[in-house]
């Protein structure tokens, strides 16, 4: 019990962020028209590509003789970049077609 309470008070800021972000995430897209469901899903997909930052940190901290970490980290950065770049470009392509043409 004590450990749980300690953990909560030690990670207070993080817990606040998580709770606020849950509400914000729901609030921000609650009034999206169905036309935009696909681009929105694609855009959200690109945003969770932020995981690439973790991959960069892992890669940048790996000791130069730890080949497992280097190879897996290299792969992780490639995959993360694909998620970010591919995600934003696909979303942009979808939205490009929505622009008003007169």
């Amino acid at each position: 019990m004590q450990t749980i309470l300690d953990w909560i008070s030690a990670h207070n800021a993080i817990i606040y962020i998580v709770i606020l972000m849950i509400f914000l995430g729901i609030e921000v897209i609650s009034r999206v028209p169905s036309v935009l469901h696909t681009p929105l899903m694609s855009g959200a997909n690109a945003i969770h590509g932020v995981v690439i930052i973790g991959a960069i940190i892992v890669m940048g901290r790996a000791e130069s003789d730890n080949y497992v970490a280097l190879i897996l980290g290299f792969l992780a950065v490639i995959l993360g970049t694909l998620n970010v770049v591919g995600g934003f470009v696909v979303t942009d392509r979808m939205l490009e077609m929505f622009k008003k043409k007169k």
Binding site: I14, I17, V18, M21, I22, F23, L24, G25, I26, V28, I29, S30, V32, H37, L40, M41, A44, N45, I47, H48, V50, V51
Partner: peptide, 14 residues
């Protein structure tokens, strides 16, 4: 943390 949770919540609602 923000990016991940934001997408987690918004994605669930979607």
């Amino acid at each position: 943390l923000t990016g991940g949770i934001l997408v987690g919540a918004a994605g669930t609602l979607l």
